[in-house]
Design a protein around this nucleic acid. Structure first.
Lengths: 313, 313
DNA sequence: GATGTCATTTGTCTTGGTCAAACAATGTAC
DNA sequence: GTACATTGTTTGACCAAGACAAATGACATC
């Protein structure tokens, strides 16, 4: 009651806004100085108190920036203008006019988790793991991510969806973890890439293909990847990149890693995040589509022994 | 090669030190001004570059602060003095028998994942879930984190360990997910807190206690937590905080959330990260130990109906 | 279409200062 | 001796205004 923060009252302190929006305190202050937005009140001690409305607007601006818009432009827009941008259908996305996809999405939107779970199991049994991942899960994840960035669904729905998928893959994988298999593949992401689902999907595909995945989880520094590859004696390192990851950073990281890895260790990179990488990187196999994973696998198997990993393209 | 940052070179920029030590940029600068430590070099542009040795010392100091020591005292100590304090096996730890803990730690260090997996399953069967989590897993996680910050093991070992635990909990939970149960508890963390293991442990404990957990995964903004709590009609929201999370931020976040949640929804906060929070927060149940979770549960069950959530303490 | 140059935008870092909350120490009543 | 109020010290978060490099966009050239 007597608390001075939050609710319809004065507003949130800058630290809370940083937590809620993901914008650093420095950024929040410099925007205020440069663009005159946001416009926080001050408490008795002169410290900023942000109105909840503006916090929501800031979160929306952050989302639009992740979609490629620049702050300078967004600041000139009013609430309606921002809303309008949210609605824009970017043709860059894989066309989502698939009716079934939209049906899945509606299950996510309505939190019908039981129906979702049932549908997942049914489709997996019907199509088999490989086709299930490629035809259903991957497009659906992309569609959910897109819907989220467009504010059609909230963080809550997105989290719930992710948790269900994670549970699905982990329970399925639990009953078929192999004791051996070739090739041995290390699965992880570079620092900054938090998404785990891509890794789980690849793990599932590798297991059904009788390979031996070593799941390391997300965000491993490059030198630790090298050490892990050596200790676990893997034949290949497979990284996953989501759309959020900057293509330039991804390319740089792959080049750095390639230089530090032994020449006979393959380096594969998958996920929507590698699609924008045009130029091939020497000794790195880019796999924008899941199908490419099978190609990499087949190529490795057809060329056993000391591949110098420079024989791709 | 041409990379100007990191590696044995001059030193790390302040942002990297913040990430690695968990000390804020503000704190790092104010320490330098007040205590004359640390003593970073400067690059051509006058920006701080911290020597790797000092970064390790800073991490050590942070660890000792988490154990209750005050910065002012620690700064007067030299390297040997810090080491001496570090070696003190603080009796605050609930460690059952140190010897077994060290044995487990050696399994982590040597990447003997199969032995680790076997040992986990054996101990869980032997002790039951509740004691397994409290006596084995929680101390072991703390010990691994400590060993990591002491540079006794690398990111690779730490990730592998986390993945094994995650797999263990998820497969175990998969076979006992309840259809109903009371109370219904939403499990998540605030933005900025990435650690999921705490949530999985709580989920496991809730399930064996015949409650109904709703796992949302990490990093949910507060307004989405509120929405999720309403839609999923939960009786309580349970947040988890690791030591990495600043106590001040945790307290602020809990206050923010408490104000936005309905009064009849309980708010519980667990994990090592809440230990340093001394002052009680109105309407929030702090659970620094796992045992406290059972207390919260028992209290809720003994007082059904419209608790106004102000009856704790 | 690829590549190079230049201008603008943008976020992070800098300094040095203020202040509330947390903590330790001391005094006082019971 | 213990409980509690009071005072003094420590500590980190916040503030302002400026500087600058890295990223981005625009435009010319090969």
């Amino acid at each position: 009651m007597t608390n001075s923060s939050v609710s319809s009252g004065p507003g949130l302190p800058i630290a809370s806004v940083e937590r809620e929006t993901g914008l650093s305190k420095d950024t929040l202050r410099v925007w205020e100085r440069r663009y005159g937005f946001p416009t926080p009140e001050r408490d008795v001690n002169g410290e900023r108190l942000y109105a909840p409305v503006q916090v929501r607007q800031l979160a929306q601006i952050k989302r639009l920036m992740d979609r490629g818009h620049r702050p300078g432009k967004l600041m000139t827009l009013d609430e309606a203008g921002l809303m309008a941008l949210d609605q824009v259908r970017s043709s860059a996305w894989p066309s989502p006019d698939d009716q079934q996809l939209e049906h899945w999405l509606s299950l996510v939107k309505t939190h019908d988790t039981e129906a979702l779970q049932r549908a997942f199991h049914r489709e997996m049994a019907k199509r088999g793991m490989a086709r299930f991942v490629q035809d259903i899960v991957a497009p659906l994840i992309a569609r959910v991510g897109e819907a989220w960035s467009r504010n059609e669904l909230g963080v809550f729905e997105e989290h719930l969806f992710s948790q269900h998928l994670e549970k699905l893959f982990r329970t399925t994988l639990a009953n078929m973890t192999p004791k051996s298999g070739d090739p041995r593949v290390l699965l992880t992401t570079l620092s900054g890439e938090e998404h785990t689902l891509g890794l789980l999907m690849v793990e599932a595909l590798l297991v059904v293909e009788d390979a031996y995945p070593v799941l390391l989880g997300p965000q491993t520094p490059i030198d630790e990847i090298v050490r892990a590859a050596q200790i676990k004696a893997v034949d290949a390192v497979c990284l996953s990149f989501s759309t959020a990851y900057s293509p330039a950073l991804a390319a740089q990281g792959l080049r750095d890693l390639r230089l530090m890895l032994p020449a006979d260790t393959q380096l594969w990179a998958g996920g929507y995040g590698v699609k924008p990488i045009r130029k091939a990187i020497d000794g790195v196999c880019l796999m924008p589509e899941f199908q490419d994973l099978f190609d990499c696998l087949a190529r490795w198997r057809s060329e056993p022994g000391g591949n110098t990993a420079d024989d791709l393209k």
